[in-house]
């Protein structure tokens, strides 16, 4: 065995070892909330994303703090965004404050790519760069994005941003650059290794627990149980896009 191959095989060995022991201890150590990420659902690196899953997110606006920005900061850190909020700056997730004009009731909620089942951005993209992965995550393939911005015209949620300036020192896991359109990816790099999106993790770590991420097609997922337990809506339901992100409490 040559020098170079070693790290790979060590890694593979570590993974095998872990799977053996991990499977044994998983049941005992996993918190109930993340149980649905159990070994049975994990995807090997060489395995493609499958349409047996559809990732979704439930946001409980009653738990979402007015003025709390934890999800936004976590997203910026994870994806290497500056956090600036000028008209030309990228914002993958933003806090939206809404006030009912008739009743004066005020609410705060995070808004980002809603990962529609029928995404208008994917319909309109001339090159097919705007795409929906088999597991329902809507992404921009920057290799074929020509920067025409038609998807930004089409998105009913203003979820997308255009990169107006050259970028350097990107997060190696989150390539992004000038002249392409981008948006929330559900932190696909994390989801692919069975982690939660950064916003969800931050929300829960900080104890707000306003966001539940999971597989919409798994009836046993915490997400589906929560969806079943209380009424939820999709924003702009009139468009019948069947969003992957749903809201409770609006």
């Amino acid at each position: 065995m040559n020098e170079h191959d070693k790290p790979n095989s060590v890694e593979a060995q570590a993974r095998r070892d872990f799977l053996k022991t991990g499977a044994l201890v998983a049941g005992a150590t996993l918190a109930p909330g993340v149980l649905f990420y159990g070994v049975a659902h994990s995807r090997a690196p060489e395995e493609a994303a499958s349409s047996d899953k559809r990732f979704g997110l439930l946001i409980d606006t009653t738990k979402c703090g007015d003025g709390c920005n934890d999800c936004v900061s976590a997203c910026n850190t994870e994806n290497g965004l500056t956090g600036e909020t000028g008209p030309q700056d990228s914002q993958w997730i933003r806090k939206v404050d809404i006030k009912d004009l008739r009743t004066g009731y005020v609410q705060s909620l995070p808004m980002m790519c809603q990962h529609c089942e029928n995404p208008p951005c994917v319909d309109v993209c001339p090159t097919g760069a705007s795409m929906k992965r088999a597991d329902g995550i809507v992404l921009v393939d920057r290799h074929t994005c020509i920067g025409c911005r038609y998807c930004m015209m089409a998105c009913p949620y203003k979820a997308r941003s255009f990169v107006h300036e050259p970028l350097t020192d990107q997060n190696p896991e989150v390539p992004r650059g000038k002249g392409c359109v981008e948006s929330c990816t559900f932190c696909v790099q994390r989801v692919d290794r069975d982690e939660q999106p950064a916003c969800v993790e931050a929300c829960n770590t900080q104890g707000h627990n306003a966001m539940i991420f999971g597989d919409l097609k798994d009836p046993e997922s915490a997400l589906n149980k929560a969806l079943k337990a209380a009424s939820s809506i999709e924003v702009r339901a009139d468009l019948a896009l069947n969003t992957g992100v749903r809201y409770q409490g609006i």
Partner: peptide, 13 residues
């Protein structure tokens, strides 16, 4: 996005 609501955000909603 939210008919009947006044909307504000950092993203010029």
């Amino acid at each position: 996005m939210f008919p009947g609501h006044e909307v504000t955000s950092t993203f010029f909603d």
